[in-house]
């Protein structure tokens, strides 16, 4: 069983919802990332989504675009991101790490090379936002061979038929994009999301994560009501941006934000237990 599946299993036993923070690797400075990841775990992260910076992040809103630009100003490459994961693993062997990014940096490394280095670094899953199942046969096969989970997206525009296909390809968990839009754009509608998740659950046993549009404890708790995992990105990245010139305060500030969401989710989980 993969580290991601194990994580969801044990949370399920405890009646808890997973909290998954997203940060862009190397934002705003390369050395900040590893301490920040540890701080996020301490604040209650169950899984970490680590963004691979890309020059043209066309599925992301302005907040994550700027994070990519800050990281790329320091020439943070995909290989450096893998080194960060390896360093994180020196102290943390439990928390699953999912790399999130775009196809081209992975294509440039070569799938095989990427898979070997990612496995060696301790990566558990990978989500390439611009590679739909239609284009991922070879990629999925190579990731399977290296026991790295390929995470797929389902969107409000995904048909029931497509959900089945995606479910058959997905590993680890399925990431439901709660809104039509880019990251950090709008607030989500919980009842609409709930409907789609029920539909999705008919096609899969995998845990369902929900992301896009979660901004605070309240929205995190509302989503934890219906999802197995709550993904939060732009809100944290905005906090990183605000602390770009106060790096010593940065990990604690971002972790503080995440901790608020953790508390809100835990309170909700407890109430429904």
């Amino acid at each position: 069983m993969s580290r991601i599946s194990q994580c969801f299993e044990s949370l399920k036993t405890d009646g808890q919802t997973a909290l998954i923070p997203y940060v862009t690797a190397g934002d705003p400075e390369p050395w900040v990332t590893v301490p920040l990841l540890h701080a996020l775990v301490d604040a209650g992260a169950d899984i970490i989504e680590l963004g691979i910076p890309f020059s043209d992040p066309m599925c992301d809103g302005p907040v994550i675009q700027k994070a990519c630009e800050r990281a790329l100003k320091n020439d943070v490459s995909i290989k450096q991101v893998l080194k960060m994961v390896k360093k994180f693993r020196e102290k943390n062997k439990e928390t699953p790490i999912v790399l999130m990014g775009y196809a081209n940096p992975i294509e440039a490394m070569g799938y095989q090379n990427f898979a070997e280095m990612a496995k060696d670094a301790g990566v558990d899953g990978v989500l390439t936002v611009d590679v739909p199942p239609e284009e991922s046969d070879e990629f999925r096969q190579i990731m399977d061979e290296h026991e790295i989970d390929t995470i797929y997206l389902v969107a409000p525009t995904t048909s029931a038929e497509r959900m089945k296909t995606i479910a058959s390809f997905a590993r680890g968990f399925i990431y439901y994009v709660s809104i039509k839009g880019v990251t950090g754009a709008a607030a989500l509608d919980v009842s609409e999301v709930s409907q789609k998740l029920s539909q999705l659950r008919e096609t899969t046993q995998l845990p369902l994560g929900v992301g896009f549009g979660i901004r605070d404890g309240k929205s995190a708790a509302a989503v934890s009501e219906i999802a197995d995992a709550v993904v939060v990105g732009s809100t944290l990245v905005r906090c990183i941006e605000e602390h770009a010139d106060k790096l010593d305060e940065l990990p604690a500030a971002v972790a503080g934000l995440l901790a608020e969401m953790r508390h809100a989710i835990n309170a909700r989980d407890l109430a429904s237990a």
Binding site: V129, D130, V154, A155, T158, R162, I166, V177
Partner: peptide, 9 residues
């Protein structure tokens, strides 16, 4: 077709 899932439809 390399786009995000939201645009596939």
């Amino acid at each position: 077709r390399f786009v995000g899932e939201t645009l596939m439809g």
